[in-house]
Every structure is written in C-alpha cells, then in structure tokens.
Design a binder for these strands. Structure first.
Lengths: 144, 144
DNA sequence: TCACAGTTTAGAATCGTTCTAAATCCGTTG
DNA sequence: CAACGGATTTAGAACGATTCTAAACTGTGA
C-alpha cells in the first residue's frame, strides 16, 4: 500500500468525522465507518442492505438496524437524499444537489442525470394551501 | 332513488363486464365489483387496502388477496397504471393516459396533472443498450 | 475519571405484499 | 342440464423490508 492510499484512508476518516460534527451528529465508530464508505465517491446509490453488506465485507461489524438508523439520520441532516423509484425498497443518494435519475428496473440500478440537463416546464400551481416541495423525475429504462 | 341512478348502477355492471371481456378477463363477481367501483370515476387513485375497504364497505365480500391479484391483472391488461411515489405502498391509477402527479406526502394523496400541461426537456440518451420506457414526474407538495 | 444522554444492538414485531393449497366458480361439452 | 376441467378465489401462512424495544455500551463535558 502506497503513501497516497494510506493518506486517503486517514483523510476519509477525518473528513467523515468533520462532516458528521458539522451536521451535528456524534462521530461514533459506526457513523464514521458508514460515512467514509458513502462519501468517498461523489455519486453513490445504496440501499440499507447493500450498504450493510458493504460495511460487513469491509470487516466492520455494524448491525442492520444501525444502518437503517444512520441512513435516516444522514438524510435528515441533509447528507443524503432518499430516492423513491421502487415499490419494494428505498434507495439513498449521496448526491443531494438538484438532479434526476435513470432507473434500470431490471437491475435495480440508478444513474444520475445532472440537474442542468433536465428541464420540467408547465408544472401547474398546486391546489389551495399546498406548496411544491420538490419535483422528481424518474426516467425508467430497459435493456434493449 | 330515481331512475337515473338505477340506470347508472345497471350500466356500471354492464360496462364493467364489457370492459373485462374486452381485456380478455373473465368477468367474475369479484372482478365486476371491483371494476365497477374503479371505473365509475375517471381519475381514481387507490391502494390495495383502500379498495378493499371500499368494496367491503359496499357490502361485498372480496378477499384482500383477490384485490391484490385483480389490481395486478388490471394493470397488466392496461386498465390501470401503477404509480410509485411512496416507499411503503403502491398506488393504482385509473387514468392510463400520459400524465403526471402531485403527491401530497402528509396525506398520501395523489392528484393528476394532465399530460399536456407538463413538458420534460433535455432527457439525455440513456447509456449503451438501454431505452426509455417511461418518464415519471412527481411533484411533491406540502400543506402551507 | 464519572455520569449520563446519546447510540448501538439482537431479536421481536410490524407492515404491505405474495404464496400456497384447497375450495369454488364459470363456461363448455356431452 | 349435469358434469368436467381449467380459471379464480380464499384463508392463512410466509415473506422481505423496515421499525421497534429494551438492554448494553460509548462519547463527551464536568
């Protein structure tokens, strides 16, 4: 292992810790581990189970309940965004900026579409006492 | 009860039966009941449970399993469209034409947005061997 | 170092949905 | 119009994702 990757690993944990503190979350062992995995890449899409598998494969022991708790806490803290595309499971996206998604239904796989790329025109004013929270666009794609 | 509503009821069952036959589905008692309820209004959004409650309240005995089966069969037959907006339950829409939705998260309530109203521009070409199946737009709204 | 609120955990519980195998129904045939 | 056979319905079990619970543990400020 070279110097760069060692530094990387160190920086990951430090960056994760800083990020957690900044978000008002106590940097516990589990949260730091999960944050390191999640935020090493800019655009990640995970489910509770995929993340649990990943952290477990990395040799770290974190319960599934904690993964669920953590995903929700991160989401509430604005570190993650929940993406609803599949009736049977929830995805979480490390990209919290404005953007949309391709969803490959057969594979259960998401791909980001940059926010600038897509424009939604003509959204009507919502009825009476309602206000727009967010506009989600899902482009469902298939093989072939 | 006046003549009009009596005629309505008759027409409902007859229309439902015709609709089922046309879709290649045997018009069983349960399917006719459910179709009558579903297609009396043009734009309905139901969940399996809401429809089950409704049919039960109407004094008709249909099992929840049959409601699920029927919703899926109707969807496959093109009589319904499934709408994915909520991680915890599936909605079915009697409007199968091109259109989008407001989703009132607090109430779990959907409102149609006509297809002509909304325009989505700039959807990128999907990667390699993928083709666009459908573009779903969900306008999430809140009280206030 | 201590204490305590915050966090994690295993396992049970819950929720929507699907499955299973048996009972029933419907349309056709004889 | 009775009987047959495949389609349909059903109750209840099973399932998978998620949440809850109560007990054990762990950061952090004093």
């Amino acid at each position: 292992m070279g110097k760069a990757s060692r530094d990387m690993a160190v920086r990951d944990a430090a960056a994760a810790t800083a990020r957690l503190r900044h978000a008002g979350l106590r940097p516990t062992r589990q949260r730091v581990e999960l944050a390191s995995l999640l935020f090493q890449d800019h655009d990640r899409h995970v489910t509770a189970e995929s993340l649990h598998d990943e952290v477990t494969a990395a040799g770290v022991k974190v319960s599934l309940a904690t993964v669920y708790n953590t995903l929700h806490q991160f989401t509430q803290a604005g570190l993650l965004r929940q993406v609803i595309v599949d009736a049977s499971r929830s995805y979480f996206d490390t990209n919290t900026g404005e953007h949309q998604h391709f969803f490959i239904e057969d594979e259960g796989h998401l791909i980001d579409i940059p926010g600038e790329a897509i424009a939604v025109a003509g959204v009507p004013t919502p009825p009476d006492g309602l206000s727009v929270e967010r506009v989600d666009v899902v482009v469902r794609v298939k093989r072939g």
